[in-house]
Design a binder for these strands. Structure first.
Lengths: 116, 116
DNA sequence: CTAATATGCAACCTTAAGGTTGCGCATCAG
DNA sequence: CTGATGCGCAACCTTAAGGTTGCATATTAG
């Protein structure tokens, strides 16, 4: 099954980023960080509708996907977005779109080459 | 949970698209459709490493996210990508990025306004 | 020192995701 | 008609995702 044609940066990492974005609570956390800047866990928990522990788990997942970063200051942990992570996801989408357009073009050419 | 406080165009749909993209097998299916054009389930199963049924489930998920579409021809079902779905995901990423840049700018302004 | 604050860690629960197998049903080739 | 092919449906299994509760640990406030 496609032994060597998959780039290491392809599915594995992209899937992780997309999976990290694929949760409503996490998207809300990201939105919160967008509008409020770097925030602590308690701050992110407010209005999330879930427990602090749940928020912590989500943040760990986002961290694992390279979307956020932590900075410990005293007893507080400041979580902030890493826009590079979003860029990687967007690049992946662009690559898929490009391949798709390419496939469309080839399909069109193929059809036009048919004798009828 | 969170019965009515979520905007309809915000997290709900975006999360679904991202979640659909957040699986390695599904990304491989998408890649296959990109390079081979519309394909049947058996065709997509080849080289996927999983059963036909598993592929079917993944296709249903992609369909639920508005990423693929089916066209039944005789006994064969042709699955094809819907680039609009990808566009929606990209728009969501762009929106987040924009908000993030905005937050960065406000943070910078705030810091520069400090007396020291 | 004593409390209150901000997290971390771990156990536990519930449910859904990803996969498989088995069977049934159309549809096309011969 | 008879098979082979392409799919759908349903039951079932295993594991991880999302959440909660409870307790432990630093750190700061008073």
């Amino acid at each position: 099954m496609s032994p060597r044609n998959n780039q290491p940066t392809s599915g594995d990492r992209s899937a992780r980023v997309f999976a990290a974005l694929g949760d409503d609570t996490r998207l809300r956390i990201i939105t919160h960080m967008c509008s409020m800047g770097p925030a602590s866990i308690v701050s992110l928990t407010q209005g999330s509708g879930v427990t602090r522990q749940a928020v912590t788990k989500h943040l760990r997942i986002l961290e694992g996907a390279g979307l956020v970063r932590t900075t410990r200051v005293g007893r507080e942990t400041s979580w902030q977005l890493l826009p590079e992570g979003l860029g990687a996801a967007r690049a992946s989408l662009d690559r898929i779109s490009a391949q798709w357009d390419n496939a469309l073009h080839r399909l069109k050419t193929f059809i036009e080459d048919q004798p009828t």
